[in-house]
Design a protein around this nucleic acid. Sequence first.
DNA 1: CTGTTAGCGCATTCAG
DNA 2: CTGAATGCGCTAACAG
Lengths: 338, 338
Amino acid sequence: MSATIKDVAKMAGVSISTVSRVVNDSKPVSPDARRRVLNAIDVLDYEPNEIARSLVTRKSNIIGVIVEDFGLSFVSQVLRGVEEVARMYDYDILVSSTYGDAENENRLMKILLQKQVEGIVVITESNNEDRVQYLKELKIPVSYLNRYYRNDEISTVTINNTDALEDIVDYLYGMGHTKIAYIGLERDFNRTVDRFKHSGYVEAMKKNGLKENVINILDNSEEAYMDLMAKLVKEIKEEKITALAVFSDEAAIKIMNLLLDEGIKVPEDVSVTGMGDITMAELYRPKLTTVKEPLYDYGAVSIRSIIKTIKGEEKMPKEKVILPSFIVERESVKKYRK
Amino acid sequence: MSATIKDVAKMAGVSISTVSRVVNDSKPVSPDARRRVLNAIDVLDYEPNEIARSLVTRKSNIIGVIVEDFGLSFVSQVLRGVEEVARMYDYDILVSSTYGDAENENRLMKILLQKQVEGIVVITESNNEDRVQYLKELKIPVSYLNRYYRNDEISTVTINNTDALEDIVDYLYGMGHTKIAYIGLERDFNRTVDRFKHSGYVEAMKKNGLKENVINILDNSEEAYMDLMAKLVKEIKEEKITALAVFSDEAAIKIMNLLLDEGIKVPEDVSVTGMGDITMAELYRPKLTTVKEPLYDYGAVSIRSIIKTIKGEEKMPKEKVILPSFIVERESVKKYRK
DNA sequence: CTGTTAGCGCATTCAG
DNA sequence: CTGAATGCGCTAACAG
């Protein structure tokens, strides 16, 4: 058993209040007493018990984080922002992952609450109406960090996906491409930010007087990709598509691989752009030209506003927080010359 | 403020002891009383305060995890194993990352201890003697999950790196290669598992009567890679190297990229193998042939033995736990025909 | 400046 | 089966 405040008090010949005072530096203590306490702490190797401290102060200094899967590149990058900033404010992070199981998610939420977390950050890809409802009723600050859409009063930080896709199309157009297809995700279209990406593409194509060509993929399964590729290859040949704006980096990379298998070269035969700028975007060859989403900042910003809210210095933003994004030009897009 | 056990007791017209008993199912309670308590819990939306509970039971049900950086692929995969298994045993995970700062690390360790974590898992790449010393003195179970070497009595789970490299060399030899170079990491050589990989390579080359050719890279910096490439290209040309056994997947992929820039094709001109089987190994083209390290299991096994130790059902293993590893054959190695 | 005291919310003896 | 009482380790009035 490690030493408690009592042991320290006894050894230093003072009361536990005095020990508490020097430990927390909360009230003046005579130099002499302080010295003796410090000494006792040292020899006893005393560390305050945060659990006991939390019970009385009603502050756990812990923030709960619910993620879908650590394995996802964007999750770990966001998490990094969360952890690093939390640490700056002396907060700890209790993480739990759902692996897409909504049942599990409610259970996790309860556990976090029981552990007296002071705020919750949710980092998921999919949307879940039940969860949103639940979160809204919580009395602690919550930040909802999916990369996708929501229309509630829960705090979210994101980028302007419509603008991002417009930028991509403009960029591609500027590179001489006119036959630009958009590869979108069909699953949960209405509940995710994908519809913003889609409309950004549509608007930009219209603006530039180009013919739209949207090809959707059903989900992330192998079959869906096979399906997509069949359509895609056909379109590339028949419609002379020269550029592909893909809804995510992961998908863009998979598609580049499959294109390669079909003997279609990127960027020589067709240019490809992604969205997100995950780590692999730079490691893959050709290096992927994409929109950099500020993943670290997603985490940093949201945890910061949670902590500020806890401290009463701010209120959780009611509106979405829109972070800047920009195109990272690499190698997967080539100037088009007919 | 949420409801406490007192509120429930009052509403149900029983004592707090009775409430505690039904909540924990610890002692018999009359059906009638139980019903009333359950009802009160329901209407008051009562959730036990884990902090208070921990204080009296002296069980936090929290395990601390120290990682170097979530961003690293292998870290997040190990973490996934840790989290998932911990959850099965009703444990939560408090994560903190050091970002390579040893100073920071001691601080984090203290914080974890103050939070009354019941065990600690350390997932790092680098070694740190101070840390090892510190961990040894802790009274709670600790598992040290770096992928590298240590020679202390702290529980570690790993693979047999010597065997792994031998397997790789044998495999390459079986594919017709005789000019096989090993790319190793120089930094901290004596304190990491890299020396095992190195000796595995050396032994296997000897066994097969081949001439060794070890090329070390200093660290992960750009310059070090430039330096390596200069040597490497020279060796490939002068010594007719046809296969490269690289110490890690990350390095193997970087090297393949740089080789590409030099106009050297993988696997046509030179075959390459990695080590680890990170996610990207399969996504990269050519898909990387490598040794699969059981990353998820690293995490799962270590957390499991920590929890078993906490429960008194087992003792932390004194010896290294060696998990199986095997070669995943993909596309980066080609049969050699002179 | 310092010690005494009263809880924080809960599990757990110990008597009934 | 049940309630009253005790204390986990600590902070925060309160009274000196």
